[in-house]
Amino acid sequence: MSEQAGPSASASAARRERQQTVVMATLTVLAGAVDAISFLTMGHVFTALATGNLLFLSFAVAGEGELPVARPAIALAAFVLGAAAGALATGGLVARHRHWFAAALAVEGALLALAGGTALWRHGTGSLTAHPDNLVIAVVGFAMGLRADTALRAAVPGMPTLLVQVSLVRLVHGLTGATGGAGAAAGPHPLPRVRLVATVAGIFAGGVLGTLITPWGTGRALLAVAAAVLVTAAANVVLARYHLLSPELIG
């Protein structure tokens, strides 16, 4: 009996890890798409890449060129508030053993839909490049701050969904055979290389995807990404119900 249970448990764990990787890779692609939409159609501002906004803000404060102060500052502040709200609200769901991951994604999707609807209502179906809307920027930035908290809480090794630097360096370490470093491994085993590749490729693919849908206009492009996030949240609930998802993404 125990001999049969061992391989079965291993197969189940491997399947859940694959599901987990697919979910996080999907979210990585969508994060890249959001940043492409925001940068190309919302006045050269990032909403997911906080590092970019901080640098833009520093350039503007130093008086370099025509870089604005307001847009990166609003995006950065909204991101921080979103992360703080996620930390507080999601922590409560985890404490009550709720489906925190799907709930966080549902809120993110609703916020992106709100931003897309606001862009359509206030500016029509075109791009906001010529007339950036600080409210739309703030809502999207808040949603991405919430995503940052979600990814941090999920703690899937090598898959932060918003950044590639650490994943890229760990991938290089793996390819070159480098060893050592506190973050070089997750537990006793090295990080799965496929997750590192999925993170780097996912951001790139998301940037391409976001660029391709920018002709739809800011509002409709954001609504498309919002729909994809909400579908991912629903899929997470279904997978959890049938015990096909890693417990870390259930709560």
Results as ranks from 00 to 15, higher is better:
Q4Y: 09
A5S: 15
A5Y: 10
A5D: 12
S10E: 12
A11T: 06
A11I: 04
S12A: 12
S12L: 14
S12W: 04
A13N: 08
R16C: 02
R18N: 03
T21P: 00
V22W: 09
V23Q: 13
M24T: 13
A25M: 11
A25G: 14
T28F: 11
G32F: 04
A33M: 07
I37E: 01
S38E: 07
M42P: 01
H44N: 13
T47W: 08
T51H: 05
T51D: 03
L55E: 02
L55P: 00
L57I: 00
F59H: 06
A62D: 02
E64H: 14
G65T: 03
P68D: 03
P68I: 09
R71S: 14
I74D: 08
L76T: 14
A77G: 11
F79A: 12
F79V: 12
V80H: 06
G82D: 02
G86T: 10
T90M: 13
G92K: 12
L93E: 03
A95W: 12
H97I: 07
H97Y: 10
W100P: 03
W100K: 01
F101V: 04
A103I: 06
L105N: 07
A106I: 04
E108M: 10
E108W: 01
E108L: 01
G109R: 00
L112H: 01
A113Y: 04
L114Q: 03
A115G: 06
G116N: 05
G117W: 05
T118M: 10
L120Q: 06
W121E: 06
R122G: 02
H123A: 11
D133H: 00
N134D: 15
I137R: 01
A143W: 06
M144L: 14
L146I: 12
A148G: 10
T150H: 00
A151Y: 08
R153F: 08
P157I: 03
G158S: 07
M159T: 10
L162H: 12
L162K: 03
V164R: 11
Q165M: 15
V166G: 10
V166A: 15
V166F: 13
S167Q: 05
L168E: 06
L168V: 01
R170W: 11
R170Q: 15
T176M: 09
A178T: 05
G181Q: 13
G181S: 07
A182M: 10
A182Q: 09
G183C: 05
A186F: 13
A186S: 13
G187A: 07
V194E: 10
V194H: 11
R195G: 02
R195S: 04
A198T: 04
V200C: 13
G202E: 03
I203K: 02
F204V: 15
A205T: 12
G207M: 05
G207P: 04
T211L: 09
L223R: 09
V225S: 04
V225D: 04
A227D: 07
V229L: 15
L230H: 00
L230T: 13
L230G: 02
A234C: 10
N236R: 11
V237M: 10
L239S: 05
H243C: 08
H243F: 02
S246R: 03
P247Y: 09
L249H: 13
L249W: 08
